[in-house]
Amino acid sequence: MAPRAAARLETLGFGQVHEYRGGKLDWMAAGLPTEGENSLHARAGDAARKDVPICSLTDRLGDVRDRVKAAGWDAALAVDGEGVVLGLLRSKELAKDPDLRIEQAMRPGPSTFRPYVSLHEMAHFMEEHDLESSPVTTSDGKLVGLLYRADAVRLGMPPK
């Protein structure tokens, strides 16, 4: 659609026309702000906790667990040097042998969600699938934050 629009504008005398190939999907998946009716509603990226502890694949599990607990968390995310999510550690994974490396203990390749998904939708999905928390990432896999079901339900579902 954008190439045809660009071509049409050129026929109308516009000399500097560019096509944003990624489009609105790419923009929103990067967690960037939008305008419009939906921008008034909370989304996954708004409620995801940005201060979730992170660690690398080669960290020792016991060290990460101590750091996570000291910070008052019950989960952590393993990321690479670019912030791309590689694994998730919830309570179950954090309770494993402290001498394991993170890559041996983590839940690899966790399901992730894009920041633009509405909290209402997230709340229903997380309840249906019994997810206590879910990583929110950009389309290129970079961590935005960890969304807790309790936050999604509190902010995304009207009180009964």
């Binding site: 109308l12 516009f14 560019h18």
Partner: peptide
């Protein structure tokens, strides 16, 4: 909207400045 791009609607744009068009994705 694509179906409404014509000389009249495009007059809202400045032909001397760059224009970036986009839709939902790469389609």
């Amino acid at each position: 909207p694509l179906s409404q791009i014509d000389r009249e609607s495009a007059a809202a744009l400045d032909a001397n400045r760059a224009v970036i068009v986009y839709c939902w994705d790469m389609a």
